[in-house]
């Protein structure tokens, strides 16, 4: 199933929560959705017979300047089709519902996105840092991140 068809079907079900379908050149087409109904949208995408996206390939956080984004790359083992879903949240309050209960692989991906980008996943059972030390300050992949001078008395630069 092509992203365009999926977009139309989702639009019928969820209305305004599905914001736009982007088919710009040099890109995989993606669907931008709102953060409010995210869990329900993904639940439909995973369980509806026509979609069956049972394989979450990747979950990446991105820093978009004013907003923080989360990109979901989905794949269906049965239908062999792909989908890219994006959600954007303001940097001041970056809260996205977790999808960890749908795809258990999202657990570590979300912890990584929280660790490096700073997106907070609401409802995640164990949202702590995964790569950096637990007492590290800041989220290094944000564009305005300034590397601290030292960590526990060891000079960084």
């Amino acid at each position: 199933m092509l992203p365009g068809e999926i977009f139309t079907k989702l639009k019928n079900d969820f209305g305004d929560a599905i914001i736009e379908l982007n088919e710009s050149p040099n890109s995989d087409p993606w669907i931008l959705v709102g953060a409010d109904q995210l869990f329900d949208i993904f639940h439909t995408l995973r369980d509806a017979d026509e979609f069956q996206f049972d394989y979450l390939m990747s979950l990446s956080g991105t820093d978009l300047g004013e907003n923080l984004g989360v990109v979901y790359h989905l794949y269906s083992m049965t239908h062999r089709h792909k989908l890219v879903v994006k959600v954007e949240v303001p940097k001041g309050n970056p809260v996205v519902p977790t999808v960890e209960r749908l795809w258990r692989t999202a657990d570590w991906h979300e912890r990584e996105a929280y660790d490096l980008i700073g997106v907070r996943f609401e409802g995640h059972q164990n949202l702590i840092r995964i790569l950096l030390p637990y007492d590290w300050e800041g989220h290094p992949l944000q564009k305005d991140y300034v590397t601290p001078d030292s960590y526990h008395g060891m000079k960084i630069s």
Binding site: S24, N26, S27, D28, M57, S58, S60, H73, V84
Partner: peptide, 23 residues
């Protein structure tokens, strides 16, 4: 490369290696 984004995956010996590249 022009502005765009792409997710490419190949079969690594350990599994699926994917790169999500945003330019």
């Amino acid at each position: 490369p022009p502005k765009g984004e792409m997710y490419i995956r190949t079969e690594n010996p350990k599994g699926e290696l994917g790169f999500y590249l945003v330019t």
